[in-house]
Design a protein around this nucleic acid. Sequence first.
DNA 1: CCAGAGCCTTGACCCAGATCAATCCGGACC
DNA 2: GGTCCGGATTGATCTGGGTCAAGGCTCTGG
Lengths: 246, 246
Amino acid sequence: MNAPVLSHSRCGDCPIRHRAVCARCNADELEELDAIKYYRTYEAGQPIIWSGDVMNFVGSVVSGIASLTQTMEDGRTQMVGLLLPSDFVGRPGREGAAYDVAATTDVVMCCFRKKPFEELMERTPHIAHRLLEMTLDELDAAREWMLVLGRKTAREKIASLLAIIARRDATLTPGGATNRMVFDLPLTREAMADYLGLTLETVSRQISALKRDGVIELEGKRHVTVPDMRRLMEEAGDDSDGGFLG
Amino acid sequence: MNAPVLSHSRCGDCPIRHRAVCARCNADELEELDAIKYYRTYEAGQPIIWSGDVMNFVGSVVSGIASLTQTMEDGRTQMVGLLLPSDFVGRPGREGAAYDVAATTDVVMCCFRKKPFEELMERTPHIAHRLLEMTLDELDAAREWMLVLGRKTAREKIASLLAIIARRDATLTPGGATNRMVFDLPLTREAMADYLGLTLETVSRQISALKRDGVIELEGKRHVTVPDMRRLMEEAGDDSDGGFLG
DNA sequence: CCAGAGCCTTGACCCAGATCAATCCGGACC
DNA sequence: GGTCCGGATTGATCTGGGTCAAGGCTCTGG
């Protein structure tokens, strides 16, 4: 597989310009960021950071999907976050990484050396403020996921994951959210299992069941059509459509 | 049961002065906070905020324990956070509350009306910075909990919860962490179950099992002695003592 | 064309934890 | 004292999802 290719380099052209840490920056601040940034690419499956490593950079996912994973010494693993384009990696003010970060698909990262970034953050409240906002969003997502992990059945877990992926796709693609959604699963069955606290066999079985029951349609193993999003949300056990449709 | 009593009123005397959002504030900033703060008390079991409510204040837990809970419409509930003294409640920059917040024990809160607090935050990077730091810590805690919920057995879950409570007690009480720990459970069996994604029967059984196996000793239903913290950490399945002991 | 590797599916069986149900214990109140 | 009541415990049984195992697809490479 080829390494992903950079399609831009100036912040003004950046596809995540208005959603990342830099969203609130004015031209001057952007200039400063531009001066300390650099791009890195990772192929699908490659590690980006190991838990415990000293982090000497922070950065944003520009394209592709990365995952945050925690592992117990006996090998049990739990994915604790999905990093989508515009999501931030790294923790200003802390030395080591707390989790393994790996590229799930090919990934392009916009990196900043940690020290200069931290200094810049001290001086520019726009960045600190945006980072707080993003962190609070991540905290909400993590807590929503705790409900999924702690209380939902396998079928509900799968439906919840599909709904989350569909929702994200809706925000990223023109057209937005409709009652019928079509998308590709960016995760293997095993990665889905790690995310959902299930085994890959159970994931497979439940996907088959949702297909059999007409909640989803499958073309190949990854291409999913959801004929009725409301139905999917019901299967997910959510107490509404989660604001998915107007 | 009597309502909790306020034992102080000036920020300088505040028991959470050095750990809460105001930790980094200088005398002037503290003065400003002092001007907009007020105390509220809640009895054990009382709701503090309902999910969806408009929040018109934010604040810090001064004493006692509160819980963040999410509920599905069929009644399944998952606790998604434990709020301990110095923890922050509320989300600057967002209208409604995302979770139910309730007092688990008697609670004293130091509240700020939301609007003035947000304005103050704009002007004082010390507060924003501290809040970012605290939010990142909460995010770490939430993700650690995702591993517990997704991958640990019932016995490991109980041991993990006991370890967390013991660790917190160690930071709050003089003497700090030792290999033998004694503390009171601040949660009912049902609340523990909600936190751990279990039923209360399973919680009860596993606590009995840990007692039978000598991992813990019980006096009454709430008073716990851990003769050997290392042993407890092993039972929790943690890949070390979590920095608990030197 | 076949072989091998990755990923996925499906079946058979089993067990940890849920569910249902009966007590128990310790305080509060009469 | 007795009764009540809200936790907590313990037992008996059931079941969702894990575990183990056998193929099945699809792509790559010889």
